[in-house]
C-alpha cells in the first residue's frame, strides 16, 4: 500500500478517535444532551471497510455509529450540529447521536434498535439487485445484534436472492455489561452461524486496519460480483463505557488490565508501527495531519455551538414527507 494511502488511513482513524475524545471531554458541559455511544478503540473497522467502498456504495449502522458515519464521509459539521441538538444537525436536531444520516455520502441511516438496520441494509441491497445496479450495501452492527431473529431472517433472504450485501459484525465481546458468554454458546462462532445460513463468512483482526481492509476488499468483490452476501467478523474492544463519555471499570464487570492489553493493540499505533517497519513513516506528516484534523474538529464544535436550535414551530414539521 502506498504511503499516501497509509497516511489517509491514519488520518481517518485519527479523525474518529479525536472526534470521540472531544465529544467525551465536552459532554461534561451538558450541552450535548443525548446519549452517546463512543467507538474509541474500534476505529479500524469503519475505516478499513469504508475505504474499500465506491462512492456510490451505501452503509447502515446502529447506536454506535459515529465512526461509520465519519468513515463513510459523513459531514463532521452536521454530526456536531446533531449532537448539540441544533437545526444544522444531520437530522435537524430530531435524531441526536443515535440517529445519524448523510445521504449524500451514502450513509443511509443509523438507528439504535438492535438488528433493525440489518434488514434495512438487506432491503437496500434487494433494491439494488432489482434495479440492476452495481452498488454494494454494508451493515455495521455489534455481536449482540446477531442474537435478534431479524439477523436470521435477513441473512436467509440475502442468501436466497444472492444480494450484494456485506454484514460487518464488530465483536467487542460485550452487550452493555453482558459478556458474550452469557449470550452465545462458546463452541459456535459467529462465522459458523453465518456459514450455516449459507453465507460466505470471514474473520480477522478487528484492530488491524490493513487486515480489515483486505477482508473488506474480498468481501466487497464477492458481493458486487454476484457471489451473494458476506459476513465479516471483527474481534475488537470498546475502551470506554457502553454509553456516555467515561470509563466504567469501577462497575467491576471487566478489569482495567483488559483495557491495557487492548491499548497495546490500538489500531492507530499499530498502523504507525507498520509504517515504521516498512520505512514509510513520516513523523512530520503525521503531526501535520493530526493538527489539521484537530482544526477541523474545533471548527465543527464552533459551528455547532453557533448554530441555532430548531424553532419550536418546527415541532410537527417533519412528521410526514409532503
Amino acid at each position: 500500500m502506498s504511503s499516501e494511502r497509509l497516511l489517509r488511513l491514519y488520518r481517518e482513524m485519527y479523525l474518529i478517535r479525536r472526534t470521540e475524545e472531544v465529544i467525551a471531554d465536552l459532554y461534561k458541559e451538558q450541552e450535548m444532551r443525548c446519549p452517546v455511544h463512543l467507538c474509541i478503540g474500534q476505529e479500524a473497522s469503519p475505516v478499513g471497510v469504508c475505504q474499500e467502498l465506491e462512492p456510490a456504495d451505501v452503509a447502515f449502522s446502529t447506536h454506535r455509529s459515529h465512526g461509520h458515519y465519519l468513515a463513510k464521509g459523513g459531514s463532521l459539521l452536521a454530526l456536531m450540529g446533531e449532537l448539540y441538538g441544533r437545526q444544522t444537525g444531520c437530522s435537524a436536531g430530531n435524531g441526536g447521536s443515535m440517529h445519524l444520516i448523510d445521504r449524500a455520502a451514502g450513509f443511509m441511516g443509523a438507528t439504535p434498535i438492535l438488528g433493525a438496520t440489518m434488514a434495512l441494509a438487506t432491503g437496500a441491497a434487494f433494491a439494488t439487485s432489482m434495479r440492476q445496479e452495481t452498488r454494494v450495501t454494508v451493515a455495521f452492527f455489534g455481536d449482540a445484534a446477531i442474537e435478534e431473529g431479524v439477523f436470521y431472517e435477513s441473512a436467509n433472504f440475502a442468501v436466497l436472492k444472492r444480494l450484494p450485501l456485506v454484514l460487518v459484525c464488530e465483536n467487542n465481546g460485550l452487550s452493555t455489561c453482558s459478556p458474550l458468554s452469557v449470550r452465545q454458546p462458546p463452541t459456535r462462532t459467529i462465522c459458523d452461524m453465518a456459514r450455516g445460513l449459507g453465507m460466505t463468512a470471514v474473520s480477522g483482526d478487528g484492530n488491524d486496519v490493513l487486515a480489515v481492509s483486505q477482508l473488506a476488499r474480498q468481501a466487497i468483490d464477492i458481493a458486487r460480483g454476484g457471489g451473494g452476501p458476506v459476513l465479516i467478523e471483527l474481534p475488537t474492544y470498546r475502551w470506554r463505557e457502553h454509553c456516555g463519555p467515561g470509563f466504567d471499570f469501577d462497575l467491576g464487570y471487566r478489569h482495567p488490565d483488559e483495557l491495557a492489553a487492548w491499548q497495546e493493540r490500538c489500531p492507530m499505533q499499530r498502523l504507525v508501527r507498520h509504517m515504521e517497519k516498512t520505512g514509510v513513516a513520516d513523523a512530520a506528516a503525521l503531526k501535520r495531519c493530526e493538527a489539521e484534523v484537530q482544526q477541523e474538529i474545533d471548527a465543527a464544535v464552533r459551528f455547532a455551538r453557533e448554530s441555532p436550535y430548531p424553532d419550536e414551530s418546527l415541532l410537527l414539521a417533519h412528521e410526514y414527507m409532503p
Partner: peptide, 16 residues
C-alpha cells in the same frame, strides 16, 4: 404528548 415522534433536541422538549 404532541402528535409527533419524540425529538432528540432539548429545544423541542418543552413543547413535545
Amino acid at each position: 404528548l404532541a402528535d409527533c415522534s419524540s425529538p432528540s433536541t432539548p429545544a423541542l422538549a418543552r413543547r413535545f
